[in-house]
């Protein structure tokens, strides 16, 4: 990677101030997306602002209605949290399925949500669990937050501080992993909320990143069972195509994974 200047602020305010004063800067916490990109010389921020040690960005709070996870909380911490597992078991399992054990020890929820990689797991959970993304400036509803490939509603210099996930009546997550990278090629998070609404979020497959599968939501709203999804298929025109899977194949997988998520509620189903 190209030379850079490392900063370790102790607070969110200090981090934001560093960002605006240094000019060419990037935030990172686990660094498991940014550092490989920098090693490939595809990104070269002059300044790196490390959010990992800011106490305000850490920790997990669970109540009956929501689970709130600090942005700098690692995937391993979320996976091991009894609070998360007790409230939304598939969310803990999702965190425990990202990358590999060493990656989960360092990679953070906030990094994943801020980056919005089209093949990341967390965005599906944020969207399906009607999450609210808290930043140092505002709160953003999940439906307004993810705006496209590697693109979010975050403004220049804005910092994700935590994400609040709504505790659903029930939920499930199923994913089929890319044989090479092990990122989901199709990951579907299905949640039936306490108000009766159903949200189905799909990651790994969309050309524009994570998306809600409205037809599946409608079908499941009437009949919350895997049977309701039979014969339903996602429109392949918006689906990604690469050497690992064509759009029709991924679209098919989305249907299969949605069915498996509903058939295996309360857990993670992984291939």
């Amino acid at each position: 990677m190209y030379e850079t200047t490392y900063h370790r602020p102790g607070s969110v305010a200090e981090a934001a101030s560093l960002f605006s004063s240094t000019g060419d800067a990037a935030y990172f916490s686990g660094g498991h997306t940014l550092l490989p990109t920098m090693k490939a010389r595809l990104a070269a921020p002059a300044n790196l602002i490390d959010l990992r040690n800011i106490p305000d960005l850490k920790g997990i709070q669970a109540s009956g209605d929501s689970v709130t996870i600090g942005a700098a909380t690692t995937h391993a911490e979320v996976a091991a949290s009894n609070d998360v597992a007790g409230a939304i078991a598939p969310l803990a399992a999702l965190a425990g399925s990202i990358g590999d054990p060493a990656v989960r020890h360092v990679g953070t929820m906030g990094g994943s949500v801020a980056n919005n990689d089209p093949a990341a797991d967390y965005p599906a959970a944020v969207l399906a669990l009607a999450g609210t993304v808290h930043t140092n400036k505002r709160e953003i509803a999940a439906d307004d937050y993810f705006t496209g490939l590697f693109s979010t509603a975050l403004e220049e210099g804005e910092i994700v501080t935590k994400v609040a996930f709504k505790v659903p009546e029930t939920s499930g997550y199923a994913k089929f992993r890319n044989p090479a990278s092990r990122y989901p090629m199709a990951g579907v998070f299905v949640a039936k909320h306490k108000d009766g609404s159903v949200r189905v979020a799909v990651t790994g497959a969309g050309n524009d990143g994570v998306f809600r599968w409205n037809a599946a939501e409608e079908a499941l709203s009437g009949n919350f069972s895997a049977d309701a999804l039979k014969g339903l298929s996602v429109d392949a025109s918006g689906i990604m195509s690469d050497i690992h899977g064509s759009a029709p194949y991924r679209a098919h997988l989305v249907g299969v994974m949605a069915g498996r998520a509903v058939a295996n509620l309360g857990t993670l189903t992984m291939d």
Partner: peptide, 25 residues
């Protein structure tokens, strides 16, 4: 048999399976 395949872009000769994200072992 199951995983490994080197893939080139037939149009421009770029190596597509150029990292462990795309070359499966």
């Amino acid at each position: 048999a199951l995983f490994e395949g080197c893939v080139y872009d037939p149009e421009n000769g770029q190596l597509i399976s150029a990292t462990y994200n795309d070359y499966s072992m």
